[in-house]
């Protein structure tokens, strides 16, 4: 290690599940290679670092800061800004930081509705006094009105998609980042590397939507079976981990670089391959599609509705 210029790296978790931190370990022995080139200067999840330590660092002294998790609280926002100041390259690590991820679906509800559900109406919560934690008595970081992605708070230099970033994506990203590159990853959609790609019929036509558990999987392209698979609109690179395990893609890798918006692109594609049928049947099938936002924007609701659900009072 001596004589070698070590990259200073940092990893922080905002509002997330912790899976991203764990995902670094999926590098297995390759993590040793990473440690040969890099020195971890801040990783509160793994080691004992204080925010003070970070504050004391010189601006721009961290070479690469990985921010995983979304921005849900004042604290998340504060650290995001701090890390931005202290780092040369700030990377949104994982789907939460990149597009808000599943927790971004919270933007369909108001803060009050969320608290209501979490603290009062949750069947497994016993809260007879109806206490909702608030800053008044505890000095908690404020829960922001809406969930934000990292980019909605600070300038971001690179994005590593995935929930959490799958091993091949991560390896590829780290290699590029250590070389100073901020553009990496594949620029085609998942079908390109899908193990079921050869089972696609000449024409895909859907006459009924099946949820994943409603149909016996015959091993063919999920879409051709009428099971919604986000693969055609989702960036490749994960080597189709889910599909290899017989689970349709839900789109955690986000959009292909050329695409403005993954959700609406897939919505259009899916509507387009509905079979010829009369208008009533058509409506019935589309009506059967529950939770449109959750289907097409499972990982990107925070981008679709950065200011929360709209309120068309009429």
């Amino acid at each position: 290690m001596e004589g070698k210029e070590m990259k200073k790296i940092a990893m922080y978790w905002g509002a997330g599940c912790g899976g991203c931190d764990v995902s670094l370990l999926s590098l297995h022995e390759k993590i040793l290679d990473l440690l040969e080139e890099a020195e971890i200067v801040f990783w509160p999840c793994a080691m004992d670092f204080k925010y003070e330590d970070l504050e004391k660092m010189k601006d721009g002294s961290i070479d690469i800061a990985f921010y995983n998790g979304a921005i849900r609280t004042e604290e998340n926002e504060e650290i995001a800004k701090l890390l931005r100041k202290k780092s040369k390259i700030l990377v949104a690590y994982g789907s939460c930081a990149t597009e808000g991820c599943v927790i971004g679906l919270a933007n369909l509800y108001s803060r009050e509705e969320i608290f209501d559900t979490v603290y009062l109406k949750n069947e497994t919560t016993k809260n007879e006094d109806g206490i909702i934690p608030s800053s008044n008595d505890l000095h908690l970081p404020e829960f922001l009105p809406h969930l934000k992605t990292l980019e909605q708070v600070v300038k971001v230099d690179a994005f590593i998609p995935g929930c959490p970033p799958p091993k091949p994506v991560l390896e590829n990203a780290l290699e590029a980042l250590l070389q100073g590159k901020t553009e990496f990853g594949k620029s085609v959609a998942l079908c390109d590397e899908c193990p079921r790609k050869d089972s696609k019929p000449e024409k895909i036509e859907i006459n009924k939507f099946y949820r994943w558990h409603e149909k016996e999987d015959n091993g063919d392209c999920f879409l051709a079976q009428g099971i919604i698979c986000m693969g055609p609109a989702t960036r490749a690179g994960c080597e189709a981990e889910c599909i290899s395990a017989n689970i349709p893609c839900t789109g955690c890798m986000g959009a292909v670089p050329k695409v403005r918006e993954q959700g609406i692109s897939m919505l259009s594609a899916l509507a387009s391959i509905l079979g010829d049928m009369d208008e009533e049947k058509e409506k019935e099938i589309i009506e059967s599609l529950q939770d449109v936002v959750g289907t097409f924007y499972k990982y990107a609701t925070a981008k679709l509705l950065p200011e929360g659900r709209l309120k068309d009072e009429s």
Binding site: A189, L190, C191, K200, K203, K258, A269, S272, I273
Partner: peptide, 24 residues
């Protein structure tokens, strides 16, 4: 170059103008 061979266009073209090449 950036086509993933998802087959959607081939499925929707009313003229059969979208051809699936050997690589899909």
């Amino acid at each position: 170059e950036h086509c993933s061979a998802c087959g959607i266009c081939v499925s929707v073209c009313p003229y059969g103008a979208m051809m699936k090449m050997e690589n899909g």
